[in-house]
Every structure is written in structure tokens, then in C-alpha cells.
Deep mutational scan, measured.
Amino acid sequence: SPQLSSEIENLMSQGYSYQDIQKALVIAQNNIEMAKNILREFVSIS
């Protein structure tokens, strides 16, 4: 969805990798808010 694409772009601009974002979305069943929480908790931005 376009909204999801812009959310993904936004997260990538914050330093998350596309791969990590995709993984979080799978775990969160495409719930972007939950995916963000997963990324915040489990992915360290280098």
C-alpha cells in the first residue's frame, strides 16, 4: 500500500535496513505500528 511504502521509506531514513523492516512487518503481520515497536526494541541503528 502507498501508506506502507512511505512508512518504510521513513524508517529507512531513520537508519533501519529494508531487510529488518520487512522482517518486522512479517512478525507484526503488516501492522506498521507494531513493526515500529519491534524495530525500536530489537534493532540497533548503527
Rank of each mutant, 00 (worst) to 15 (best):
Ser1Asp: 08
Ser1Gly: 04
Ser1Glu: 15
Pro2Glu: 15
Pro2Gln: 10
Pro2His: 14
Pro2Asp: 06
Pro2Met: 05
Pro2Lys: 07
Pro2Asn: 10
Gln3Ala: 05
Gln3Pro: 04
Gln3Met: 15
Leu4Asn: 07
Leu4Tyr: 12
Leu4Phe: 13
Leu4Gln: 05
Ser5Tyr: 06
Ser5Cys: 08
Ser6Arg: 12
Ser6Asn: 07
Ser6Ile: 11
Ser6Asp: 07
Ser6Phe: 08
Glu7Lys: 08
Glu7Cys: 12
Glu7Met: 10
Ile8Arg: 02
Ile8Lys: 05
Ile8Asp: 00
Ile8Gly: 02
Ile8His: 01
Ile8Thr: 03
Asn10Gly: 13
Asn10Trp: 07
Asn10Lys: 13
Asn10Leu: 13
Leu11Glu: 00
Leu11Gly: 01
Leu11Val: 00
Met12Phe: 06
Met12Gln: 14
Met12Asn: 09
Met12Tyr: 03
Met12Ile: 12
Met12Gly: 02
Ser13Glu: 11
Ser13Leu: 11
Ser13Trp: 04
Ser13Ile: 09
Ser13Pro: 03
Gln14Arg: 05
Gln14Thr: 06
Gly15Glu: 02
Gly15Ala: 02
Gly15Asp: 01
Gly15Trp: 00
Gly15Thr: 01
Gly15Tyr: 00
Tyr16Trp: 09
Tyr16Ala: 04
Ser17Arg: 04
Ser17Lys: 03
Ser17Ile: 14
Ser17Met: 05
Tyr18Val: 07
Gln19Lys: 06
Gln19Ala: 10
Asp20Leu: 09
Asp20Gly: 04
Ile21His: 03
Ile21Met: 00
Ile21Cys: 07
Gln22Ser: 05
Gln22Asp: 12
Lys23Glu: 15
Lys23Trp: 14
Lys23Val: 06
Lys23Gln: 11
Lys23Ala: 10
Lys23Met: 14
Lys23His: 09
Lys23Phe: 06
Lys23Pro: 00
Ala24Asn: 04
Ala24Thr: 01
Ala24Pro: 01
Ala24Ile: 01
Ala24Cys: 07
Leu25Gln: 03
Leu25Arg: 14
Leu25Ile: 10
Val26Met: 08
Val26Ile: 12
Val26Arg: 13
Val26Tyr: 09
Ile27Leu: 13
Ile27Tyr: 09
Ile27Gly: 14
Ile27His: 15
Ile27Asp: 15
Ala28Met: 01
Ala28Leu: 01
Ala28Phe: 00
Ala28Glu: 02
Ala28Gly: 14
Ala28Cys: 05
Ala28Asp: 12
Gln29Met: 06
Gln29Ala: 06
Gln29Val: 02
Gln29Ile: 00
Gln29Pro: 11
Gln29Phe: 01
Gln29Tyr: 04
Asn30Gly: 07
Asn30Trp: 04
Asn30Glu: 04
Asn31Asp: 09
Asn31Pro: 01
Asn31Met: 05
Asn31Trp: 05
Asn31Ala: 00
Asn31Ile: 01
Ile32Lys: 05
Ile32His: 10
Ile32Asp: 06
Ile32Ser: 10
Glu33His: 07
Glu33Asn: 08
Ala35His: 00
Ala35Trp: 00
Ala35Thr: 10
Lys36Leu: 01
Lys36Val: 05
Lys36Arg: 11
Asn37Met: 01
Asn37His: 13
Ile38His: 15
Ile38Phe: 15
Ile38Val: 12
Ile38Asn: 14
Ile38Gln: 15
Leu39Ala: 01
Leu39Pro: 02
Leu39Glu: 05
Leu39Lys: 04
Arg40His: 14
Arg40Lys: 11
Arg40Ala: 10
Arg40Val: 08
Arg40Cys: 04
Glu41Val: 02
Glu41Lys: 14
Glu41Ala: 05
Phe42Tyr: 06
Phe42Cys: 05
Phe42Gln: 12
Ser44Leu: 11
Ser44Ile: 09
Ser44His: 10
Ser44Lys: 11
Ser44Val: 09
Ile45Cys: 14
Ile45Trp: 04
Ile45Thr: 14
Ser46Pro: 07
Ser46Asn: 09
Ser46Ile: 00
Ser46Arg: 13
